[in-house]
Every structure is written in structure tokens, then in C-alpha cells.
Amino acid sequence: MALPTAQPAEILRAWQKDDLYEKQLAGSLAKLLPSHHASKAIPTSSVLYKSLTTLRDLQTLGEEYSGIVQVDDTYHKLPSFSNRLLSILLSTFGENITRHILRQIERQVEQNVSLKPEAQNFFLVILRALGNMVPQIESIHRALSYINGGPLQISKTATGINYVHVRPAASAFYAHLRLLSIVTLLHAFISCGQSVYQAKKHLEQMADFPNEVDSSKSCAACLEEIVQPCVLQCGHYFCMQCCYGALESCALCRTPFTKNTVVPLMNYCPSVK
């Protein structure tokens, strides 16, 4: 006889418990690691915790507390080793991988000389908006799981992992989960709307900039008045802070440059003609 599908409230309770244990483990690891490696404590603790439980076909502490077990999409067997491993990697590094892919696409767009500057700006703004929406996509998936059931993590949904009860579940109706799902969806959609609005606003600002900066007092990278102007190989001017900061290509013509090719203009003032 097939085991009953786990209720959303039990899955949420298990996820909250596991998240608490992972954070406690990360706090202990952070004390052991050097200060410049402290940021690695969170992903390390996540991989370590899941490797000692899920990867070994064991319940996590949260799953044991809630009385649920991971199963594959047939609901009759435990997930395969490859699916469990892929789920762990995606849950730990999925967001960073997604952002890395988006940055790689951005670089390809910046270096594509066949695209017009207007088209490049459009694609870059859209890609950056998508990067800002990554956490909201996970929130939307979690909110839908509150209503329809299933795992809260996209990584488990992508690898076909679900949950069943191994002991009788509480019969109470968890109406607060529906309210939580509505609030979560509203917050996610508002955040996505803000990202789209900011992207559109940035696109309009970029469209207002002329191709030649000689006639402008503003820096096309930070949109502020040029301070300590520098010139790039392409002939466009920017702030020194922008040139030696995160900027890797000209914000106007998308020509790549290296920091050692930036030329500071000590006696040049863009406001004086």
C-alpha cells in the first residue's frame, strides 16, 4: 500500500528545522575557519549536513521530526543517488550558478560588436533584472508549494523528489499556510515588478545619453557628475572610481578594457568647454 503524500505543513516544518540546524552548523564552522573564509561556512555546512543524511539515504533531523521521507516521482521508491546528489548541489550552488550564467551572457552581449548600443543596453538591462529576480522565483515556487504540496526547494522539484508520511499526520487544517502563500506571492510579484521598473528606468536613462561624452557633464556608468575623469581607449570619459571599480567595458560603446589602459586626466574638467 502506498504511503500518503506529505502535507505542506509537515514539509514546511521539516524545512524550518533543517534550516535551523544548518545555520547552527555554519556558525560553528565560521568560528573554525579563518576570517577571510568565513563566507564559505554556509555552503559548506549545507553540503556537509545533506551529505551525512540525504546522500546516505537517511532522514534529515527535520524530516525525522515531521515523520516524512523523501521519495522519487513514483512515490514507491527512495530517490536515486544521482538525483539526491544533484538536488544537494542545486540547493547549495544553484543560485550562484544561475547568476554566473547570467554574467557570462552579459559579457558575451557586451563583446558582441554586431549589436547596436541600444540593443546591447536593452539585453543587459533585462539580464540584470533577471539576476535580481532569482530569489523571488524561489519565493514564488515556495508559495505555490504551500497551496499544492510538494517540496519547497526548486532543486527537489527539478530532480523529481517528493515526500510521503511514514506515521499518521495531524488532521488539522492549516489555513494559515494559504494566507502565508498569498502574502509570499504578493511580496514576490511586487519585488519582480520593482526590478522590471528599475530596469526600464535604467534603459530610458541609457537612451538619453549621447554616444559622445565630450558634450556631457555626467558619467554614463554611475549617472553622477564626473569626478576625477579618466579616458578609455575608445575615447569615452568616466569617473576614476567607475573605471577602477566594477566597470569592465565602456558603458557607451561596450568596448572591453583593462585597468592598466585607463588614463587619468589630471587637469581636465568636463564642465569647462
Rank of each mutant, 00 (worst) to 15 (best):
L25R: 01
T54L: 08
L247N: 09
N211G: 15
T184W: 07
S195W: 08
I126M: 10
G62W: 05
L33N: 10
D214K: 15
S216T: 14
H236W: 07
E22K: 13
E95Q: 09
E204D: 13
F93S: 05
L61V: 10
A14P: 01
D73Y: 06
N83V: 00
L179M: 08
L55M: 13
I161N: 00
M1L: 12
D19C: 07
I11V: 15
K40D: 11
C239H: 12
F189T: 15
R103Q: 05
K40V: 05
P34H: 13
H76E: 14
Y75A: 04
L48S: 12
L3T: 01
Q59E: 03
V262S: 07
I101C: 05
L85S: 11
N267V: 03
A14H: 03
Q194D: 10
P117S: 10
P4I: 07
V227F: 03
R99A: 12
S139D: 14
Q120F: 02
V134T: 14
P34N: 08
I11W: 01
S218C: 10
A30D: 02
Y268R: 06
S249T: 06
A9W: 06
L186A: 13
V47H: 00
F123K: 14
D208T: 07
C250V: 10
Y237H: 15
L86R: 11
A251C: 04
D18G: 05
Q120L: 00
C253V: 11
A26H: 06
K201F: 11
L61Y: 12
T261S: 14
I140C: 02
N83P: 03
G67H: 11
R128H: 12
T159M: 12
Y163C: 03
R13A: 13
G150D: 13
Q104S: 09
P135H: 02
L52D: 03
C222A: 09
A26P: 05
L177T: 03
C242I: 10
